[in-house]
Simulated scan of single mutants.
Amino acid sequence: MMKFIGEITVALLPALLLFTGCRQETQEVKKSISPITVDVQTVNTINTASSRNYTGIIVESQSISLSFLTTGNVAQVLVSEGQRVKKGQLLAVLHSENAQSILDAARAKEAQATDAYNRFTTVYKSGSLPSVKMVEMETNLQQARSSRQIAEKAFNDCTLSAPSDGVIGKRMLEPGMNAAPEVPVFTLVKIDNVYAKISVPEREISNIDDGQRVSVTIGALNDTVVSGTIKEKGVIADPLSRTYTVKISIINRDGRCRPGMACSALISSPDSVLSIVIPQYALLKGSDGPFCFVTDSTKTLALKRPVKIGTLTAQGVIITEGLRYGESVVVSGFQKLSDSVAVVCR
């Protein structure tokens, strides 16, 4: 029996020696990996204004469709898209030869009727003309005047002028084209004051008031931030999206904000709320979304923590989910970190 046990011991001895050597080697490798030095910051809550960001588009404060009042062929187009115009400025002209001829004939008939009326008036006052004849002369003169006025209007309708100051937003007319009444040929827009048009969900519309100040960011202008004021708040929700239209008035005297530009509006509530905020540089972006590194309770291991972010404030980025009060967030030295890596906190 003792001989059998000895044989087993001799057979297992090399395996035991190999296992012990591997274990010692693993321990030596672990000892050779030095902890990474990092700086941490304790997560605190601060008072921040409750705010929400809404995407929208810049629209003109007023848009006017312009069309001719008569049918005709276009002779001249005197303005182009984007051009500023003044009230009464001539925009386009139709060929008016026929209208001019009709007006000349109407003026001649009016002059003839006026002359006849004056001559018959002298005879009528002398008692040599019956009253019925004088009434006929007055009627002829009035008809001639009316015909001349109609001809003048038809001639003037061959031109199209700006009804107010503004900018030509669209031009749908070229020389040689035919124009017709109620067919728009220009769109005149006013952009000295523009609106940022946004859609607000029905659950949030009660937090928005007329006259409230808003920060509007316009991406097309290198993320320029302009100040605006809420002027219009819709009263009927969109039946599909369940959102209300809100218009934010923006002063635009330099004309930089143009209709069609995409924008975002940051609307803050006067009420303050407690929020977790971390420095923006401590926030990292991964394939699964934003994350940061926190340390365990012993502050010896770095743990990868996915988070959900809110808005950017002067104090940092608001974290809406993923962090708790009192935890330690790594704020520097995280470039070499991965999940569950040993760290030393300074």
Results as ranks from 00 to 15, higher is better:
298 T>I: 06
95 H>D: 14
6 G>Y: 08
171 R>G: 01
86 K>L: 09
279 P>S: 02
13 L>I: 09
139 T>C: 04
93 V>N: 06
329 V>T: 07
55 T>L: 09
86 K>I: 00
273 V>Q: 13
114 T>E: 11
272 S>D: 10
339 D>E: 03
211 G>F: 08
270 P>I: 04
154 A>G: 08
61 S>R: 12
11 A>I: 08
71 T>Y: 00
8 I>R: 09
203 R>A: 12
59 V>L: 08
200 V>K: 05
326 G>V: 03
141 L>A: 08
144 A>K: 07
162 A>L: 04
60 E>L: 03
329 V>G: 01
244 Y>F: 15
310 G>M: 02
90 L>N: 06
257 C>H: 10
200 V>P: 12
272 S>W: 06
65 S>V: 02
87 K>Y: 01
188 L>N: 03
297 S>I: 12
116 A>I: 05
6 G>P: 01
272 S>M: 05
16 L>Q: 04
238 D>R: 02
12 L>E: 10
157 D>Q: 14
17 L>M: 13
230 I>W: 03
218 I>D: 06
162 A>S: 14
111 A>I: 05
39 D>H: 09
326 G>W: 04
193 N>E: 13
230 I>T: 11
238 D>Y: 14
141 L>V: 01
345 C>E: 14
32 S>V: 03
102 I>R: 13
146 S>F: 08
255 G>L: 13
166 G>L: 12
297 S>A: 10
45 T>H: 12
327 E>R: 03
94 L>G: 00
12 L>S: 12
248 I>W: 02
31 K>N: 10
344 V>I: 13
91 L>W: 04
159 T>H: 00
297 S>H: 06
344 V>K: 15
336 K>F: 14
114 T>D: 12
235 V>N: 12
81 E>D: 07
115 D>A: 13
195 Y>W: 15
111 A>N: 11
127 G>C: 06
291 F>P: 09
241 S>G: 05
72 G>Q: 00
258 R>I: 11
315 Q>C: 01
113 A>Q: 06
253 R>W: 03
119 R>T: 10
254 D>K: 04
296 D>A: 01
317 V>H: 07
151 A>V: 01
46 I>E: 12
325 Y>V: 05
173 L>E: 00
34 S>E: 11
273 V>W: 02
106 A>M: 02
2 M>S: 10
202 E>R: 10
130 P>E: 13
248 I>F: 11
305 R>L: 04
337 L>W: 06
87 K>W: 02
128 S>P: 01
211 G>N: 06
145 R>L: 11
53 N>K: 12
202 E>Q: 11
42 T>M: 07
301 L>R: 14
88 G>H: 04
155 F>W: 14
129 L>K: 00
33 I>A: 02
275 S>N: 03
293 F>D: 06
36 I>L: 14
309 I>W: 05
184 P>T: 10
319 I>H: 03
16 L>G: 09
308 K>C: 08
264 S>R: 11
38 V>L: 08
307 V>E: 03
158 C>L: 01
37 T>D: 08
287 S>E: 10
217 T>Q: 04
225 V>W: 02
313 T>N: 06
185 V>D: 00
